[in-house]
Design a protein around this nucleic acid. Sequence first.
DNA 1: GGCGATTATTTCAAGCTTGAAGTTTCGTAA
DNA 2: TTACGAAACTTCAAGCTTGAAATAATCGCC
Lengths: 154, 154
Amino acid sequence: MVAGPTSIGPGKERLRLWIRLLRASRTIEAELRERLKKEFDTTLPRFDVMAALYRSPEGMLMSDLSRFLLVSNGNVTGIVDRLVSEGLVTRARRNGDRRTSMVRLTEEGSKSFAAIAAAHENWVGELLGTVSEDEARRLTGMLKSFRSNWEGRE
Amino acid sequence: MVAGPTSIGPGKERLRLWIRLLRASRTIEAELRERLKKEFDTTLPRFDVMAALYRSPEGMLMSDLSRFLLVSNGNVTGIVDRLVSEGLVTRARRNGDRRTSMVRLTEEGSKSFAAIAAAHENWVGELLGTVSEDEARRLTGMLKSFRSNWEGRE
DNA sequence: GGCGATTATTTCAAGCTTGAAGTTTCGTAA
DNA sequence: TTACGAAACTTCAAGCTTGAAATAATCGCC
């Protein structure tokens, strides 16, 4: 999804937009991935899961994580498995519904995430440095109105 | 990279923007991936490679593809391998420099891509339907000015 | 209570992705 | 011309990702 338009037609500007959008996010994502690896020896998916859990001290179900992060159930299983084996999160079986388990950050996971998140925010600020805060607000607004047509779909 | 901000600070709007950007592109990408699979039994990476080759009838080197698509060399090798085995592209050894090979769409690959690309453009038009062509132009402009600071970096 | 449908999760195969290490070929300088 | 460093590419291990199939527990209806 990174190639240029191959024809010109009515949706031309939208196709251009999509290609720009994709190239921008891929570029930023690649840079963040690399820094996470180099500076903290972790990955973006692990960071995503930890970020979600950090916002929910009470914990999240696997399916909550899957829905929130926009990835499949099976995917979350693997990432959480690795985080558990690293001692960063726990899976607690629940009495109420034994099909589910509550996933939470450990003390260590929480400390670890806080440090990474601080660096992460700085990196994003740096990488988007050429976008003014005001412009960022406007762009966000446009993207938000688009997203609202898709949020929570299917 | 899909979680919300975990702190409020100077780069707050940029972080918000990044999260929106990422969620938007993930959502669109997931939808396109699914349709490519269902309708044409292909994948996004294959589509990307074919799109690049379609623009270059004279062919591209593996490293050209890698650079253009923003993915690693080894990655391109695997995708091209699969396209070759499907008869959609060819790898032609070159007399000039025998380290390299020219990758080209086959006749079948070219026909196949044209059909997929038409559907793809319609899908993008549909998925970005809530963004007016004019708004699309403005958004693209903003993203372009951002990208120019990164294009061809490192 | 029993049982079929539903829900939550895991498992699995196939493919994508990277970064590092390995192979082959090229260019060039002694 | 030979040797060495660079360039183009492939191979590989590890991890991410999906979608489909399997497992297990719960729910609702009789």
